[in-house]
């Protein structure tokens, strides 16, 4: 079963990019709360990139111009990662886990152990821990499902949205990776879209542009959409769909 050391052995695979996207994101969360792991991962990543020295090759000269031109038109992100300190938003963000908590799902295993690191500042730590554990179990179940499907979409404004879901379990996991930082007072909101009929699937904290969420019950939805909404979320999408991941 899962002892704390187990997740640690993934450090090598992580440094070599030999994890799937979801595992990678989970492990990244793990090291965010584990200084010893972070040091090891830093060193192993540094080591892995030395392997690249075995293959130096000058790119075609047109690449320079293309890269510099595109950079000149690309807005840079600001220095600090947005803190994940939303309060009401985070509770909403965790809403789907309520049923699982009620069911007493606290199993931990494998990848599930990595999920419990963030949002330490949010109140009611115990409830939150329970919610996170339930979420971990759900994430693990989705990822272990034989029919798991992974879809990715690039978001307007940069970053990616990744959805892993299991039609059989009717559950999914959403990852938002480095979306453009939302303007002040705005937040990213997720929507399960069924034949152009959107249902809210959660709101990120204002300012948050990366994160993960469990989709508890996908139903007949065919797309996972992301919009920018006033902080706290909207009953219906008011912004353009910045990314749509098909759940076919």
């Amino acid at each position: 079963m899962s002892q704390p050391a187990e997740i640690h052995t993934l450090a090598g695979a992580y440094a070599l990019d030999a994890l799937t996207e979801i595992e990678r994101a989970s492990f990244a969360r793990h090291i965010a709360g584990c200084e010893a792991c972070a040091v090891e991962v830093a060193e192993l990543s540094e080591t892995a990139s030395r392997l690249a020295s075995a293959s130096l090759e000058s790119p075609p000269s047109r690449l320079r111009e293309a890269v510099l031109a595109e950079a000149a038109q690309t807005r840079q992100v600001t220095a600090s990662r947005p803190e994940r300190t939303g309060h009401a938003d985070v509770r909403r963000w965790r809403r789907w886990t309520a049923a699982a908590v009620a069911a007493g799902v606290v199993a931990l295993g494998g990848i599930a152990t990595v999920w419990a690191v963030q949002e330490q500042r949010v109140g009611d730590a115990r409830r939150q821990t329970a919610a996170l554990r339930a979420e971990q179990a759900q994430v693990a179940a989705v990822l272990a499902a034989g029919d798991v499907e992974v879809g990715t979409a690039t978001a307007t404004g940069g970053g990616r949205v990744i959805v892993a879901h299991s039609p059989r379990l009717n559950d999914g996991v959403v990852l938002l990776e480095d979306l453009a930082p939302p303007p002040p007072g705005m937040a990213y909101q997720l929507w399960l879209i069924d034949d152009d009929e959107p249902t809210s699937a959660g709101v990120l904290a204002a300012g948050q542009n990366s994160g993960a969420a469990v989709l508890d019950g996908i139903g007949g939805a065919d797309t996972l959409g992301v919009t920018l909404e006033p902080a706290g979320g909207s009953p219906e999408p008011t912004g353009a769909v910045l990314a749509g991941v098909p759940l076919a």
Partner: peptide, 20 residues
């Protein structure tokens, strides 16, 4: 495999003298 990847990288790290 997980273990070999990690052990191998650790050995490589020490051989290359990588420190952070």
């Amino acid at each position: 495999i997980k273990t070999r990847m990690r052990d191998g990288l650790i050995r490589l790290r020490d051989c290359l003298g990588v420190t952070v």
